[in-house]
Amino acid sequence: MTGPRVLIVDDQSLVRTGFRMILNARGVNVVGEAADGVEAVSAAGQLRPDVVLMDIRMPNLDGLAATRQIIALLPQCRIIMLTTFDLDRYVYAALAAGASGFLLKDVTPEHLSNAVRLVGTGDALLAPSITRRLVERFAAESAPTRLHRDLTPLTPRELEVLTLLGTGLSNTELACELMLSEATVKTHVARIFAKLHLRDRAQAVVLAYETGLVSPSGSPA
């Protein structure tokens, strides 16, 4: 088996078995399973996975609380939230808790394996269109007060990039908007992450909204 080491967390055994079979068939190493958040935190501490597929709604300890605990324990671990509902109201909270993206449980086998590999490389699993809808639909109720975060380390250009990134633009779209090469955009994004200690694009989107750079309508404030 190659690629990221994966822990599957879901209270339905059929879901766990199905995902394990799909990932194993595509050469992804599933190192363990857990049926609730408590088991997930314990398993993560023992197995130290690279990626966790995490159900949001579970007994004993839900996916949000488990995500916070696992990231506190393993800062480099990537969490992909699983939900049965498109734009579940908990997804924004999950991203704020440190998750790197989310998938619907009816995801295709190919999309599932590709998503795990993508997040395992350190990228975030957030399509720009989904990002825009997330901010517009749920951010206002999830983060009603502006977060006071020091953005002074950023240059004016980096602040501009962060603002546009927060509206859900991809690197290609950022390059077109700012009339820069994609390589230059990637450099700006990497510097923003380093200066603000952000894990990935998902955290950048959340930060852009919570600091007031992006309004609840999903556009620059």
Score class of each variant (00 low, 15 high):
G3I: 01
P4A: 05
L7T: 06
D10R: 02
D10P: 11
D10E: 09
D10H: 01
Q12Y: 10
Q12E: 12
L14S: 08
L14C: 02
V15A: 09
V15H: 03
R16V: 08
R26N: 06
N29V: 06
N29F: 05
V30Q: 07
V30G: 03
V31E: 10
A35Y: 01
A35S: 14
E39L: 03
Q46W: 01
L47Q: 13
R48C: 07
P49H: 00
P49W: 01
D50A: 03
R57A: 11
M58Q: 04
P59H: 00
L61C: 06
R68H: 00
R68P: 02
I70M: 09
L73R: 08
L74K: 03
Q76H: 10
R78E: 07
I79W: 00
I80Q: 02
L82F: 03
L87W: 09
L87G: 08
V91D: 13
A97V: 15
A97F: 11
G98S: 06
G98Q: 09
A99Q: 06
A99H: 04
F102Y: 15
F102M: 06
K105S: 10
K105R: 13
V107G: 02
T108D: 12
T108A: 12
H111K: 13
L112I: 01
S113L: 01
A115V: 00
R117H: 06
R117C: 04
G120H: 06
T121M: 09
D123A: 10
A124V: 10
T131V: 14
V135C: 09
E136C: 04
E141S: 14
A143M: 13
R146M: 14
L147W: 08
T152I: 09
T152S: 15
L154Y: 06
P156W: 10
E158T: 10
E158I: 09
L159Q: 15
V161P: 07
V161S: 04
L162C: 13
G166Q: 11
G168F: 02
G168P: 08
S170F: 06
N171S: 11
C176D: 15
L178T: 05
L180Y: 12
A183F: 14
A183Y: 12
T184F: 05
T184E: 15
T187I: 10
V189L: 14
V189C: 13
A190G: 11
R191I: 14
R191F: 07
I192T: 13
D200L: 05
A204G: 15
A204S: 09
A204I: 13
A208P: 15
E210G: 02
G212Y: 02
L213Y: 00
L213M: 07
S217P: 11
